[in-house]
Every structure is written in structure tokens, then in C-alpha cells.
Design a protein around this nucleic acid. Structure first.
Lengths: 150, 150
DNA sequence: TAAATCTCACTAATATATTAGTGATCGTTC
DNA sequence: GAACGATCACTAATATATTAGTGAGATTTA
């Protein structure tokens, strides 16, 4: 029985690889009571605060509808605080709460440890090339998305 | 303000790259009324039929709970048929329906076209190395998952 | 062969993803 | 400055993801 597809399923292959990577972080995230998506947000806010939902969505690849729920839950468990801008009532400003900031500070070194172990498993050179390849993919496959603007 | 993390968010980077790839397939999938997950299943069944849920879950990286719903919906819209095995009533056998098989046959060449255009955008050599790198990651990061068996 | 164990699909509950659409608000144009 | 178009967060509806747990049914063990 010859294969009916010449190419392997690339999105599936990328999903598999990503699952493996996430598998190394998941215990830490679960142990600290944050989901993967919540951690993405905590992480970007820890680097630069405050941010607006639209910016967070772009940085963390979360759609606007997803973001609405995620931010609501994060505010619920006191990870972030959201306040509407006075000069533009459409917009919202999101910041880490003290608890969220403490969580980020506490988790950061553990996260780095995991990256160190990943680099040991994969090799530093491999990792460098991997990041480069992913960046290159994102740039080269980006144009097509925006080509149906007009 | 120095960065607080030495490493970039690798799962996020992989998600971004995967999103770009999927962006090229999504119009075709949506146009044919199948979700990404449903297409993964149709595709593996088109290559080798029949399969059991557990096998499909492993091949397509769908958890058992997700699979239950996805397969139910696929049976609902007549893409697959599920029948329980006589000699082992725990197990189920999933096959493509005639309609599912026709869909796969009709979509296959369009899928290949998209891969061709991706290869043109990224370069054949790049793609070959990409597949290799992802395979390597999956193997090298696999051991750790199974190391907490005992 | 009865009990303990294991496998399998499935349920339950909550969190996200995806697609389409909406209302309030802002900037621009006339 | 009122109509217009654009932006923004948000809602609604459906599909998946994740984690924990269950019960029927097969397999192993005692």
C-alpha cells in the first residue's frame, strides 16, 4: 500500500515537538497553579508593564475572545489587575498584581533551569539553530497572511 | 531595563511558527467543513484503515477525552463510522465513511499543492532540515517523559 | 474460578480556541 | 459638529484541551 500523501503532516509534527517541550514545563506550571496561557501573560508582563489586551494578545498569540476569559480568571485569582483608561474608554491597561509579580520572580529561575536542561538534552548549537529556523519560518510565511488585505 | 529571562519563550515561538504553517491550510480545511483535528484523523485513516481510538489519539496527538467528542461529531456529519469490536467490547473500530474517503481523496492534491508552495517559500533544504530537527527533538525529549514510571 | 489488576472508552468540570458578530467609543471627514 | 468609518474589548456559540475520575470488560494472579 503506497502512501497517499507525499508529505508528512507538518503541523502535527510541530505539535508533537512542542508537546515534548511543554512537557518539561508543565509540572512547574501546574505546581504553581498557572496554565500555560496564563504563564505566557505573566511572563510578558514581567518583562514590560503595563500592557493592553490587544498587545498581550499579539505578544502571546491569544485571540481576543480567549484573552477576555483568561484575563478575567487571572484577575479573579489575583495575578493581574485591569483598569480602563480614562482618556480612551475603549482600552484597558493590564498590570501584574503584587502576587503575580512575586510568582513571576519566584518561577523565573526554575524556568531558566528547565531551559538549561533542555539545552543539555538537545545541544546548544542545535538550540541556536532551532530558534533561528523558527524565526525564519515566521518571517517567510508571514507575507502570505497579509496578502489578502485589499 | 535588562531582560528578566535569559531565554526566549520556546513553546510560544513554536506556537507562532506552527500558526503560520496552519494559516496556509486553514482556508482549505474551513472551505471543506473540517476542523484541523478532524482533518488529522481523516488523513491518518486515509493512509491506514481501520484504527482504534487509542491508536488515533496516539497518531494524531489527541487526548482520549478530546477524541470522544471529535469522533462523535465526525460520525454525526458522516465522516467516519465507529463500531464496537465483538471479541473485545471495550474497544472500538473507526473507519472512514464513503463520504469521508471521498473528502480525503478530493482534498489530498490540494494539500500537496500547499506543501509545494510552503517548500517554495522556505526552500527545500530548509524543509528537509526542519523535519529532521523536529524528529530529533521528539526523540531526545521523549526519554524524560517516561523516566518517572517507577 | 474468584479476586486483584489492568485497559479501554467514556464522563465531568473547567480552561482555551475559533468564528462571527456587537456596542461603545474614538478619530476623521464633510 | 453630525455622519462616517475604524478600533477596541466583549459576547455568543461551538469545538478542543486538560485533569481527574469512573465503570464495563479483559487479563493476570492466587
Amino acid at each position: 500500500m503506497p502512501p497517499k500523501f507525499k508529505r508528512r503532516n507538518l503541523p502535527l509534527l510541530m505539535l508533537r515537538a512542542r508537546e515534548r517541550v511543554l512537557g518539561h514545563f508543565r509540572p512547574l506550571l501546574n505546581g504553581n497553579g498557572v496554565t500555560e496561557q496564563q504563564w505566557r501573560i505573566v511572563r510578558v508582563l514581567f518583562e514590560s508593564e503595563p500592557l493592553e489586551p490587544r498587545e498581550i494578545g499579539d505578544l502571546c498569540r491569544l485571540s481576543s475572545p480567549s484573552l477576555t476569559g483568561v484575563l478575567a480568571r487571572m484577575e479573579e485569582i489575583d495575578l493581574v489587575s485591569c483598569k480602563r483608561l480614562k482618556h480612551d474608554k475603549r482600552r484597558v491597561e493590564v498590570s501584574l498584581s503584587p502576587r503575580g509579580r512575586a510568582l513571576a520572580a519566584r518561577m523565573a529561575p526554575r524556568i531558566e533551569e528547565i531551559y538549561t536542561s533542555l539545552e543539555r538534552l538537545l545541544g546548544e548549537n542545535f538550540c541556536r539553530q532551532l530558534y533561528g529556523a523558527l524565526d525564519e519560518m515566521i518571517v517567510k510565511l508571514e507575507a502570505v497572511e497579509n496578502s489578502d488585505d485589499g
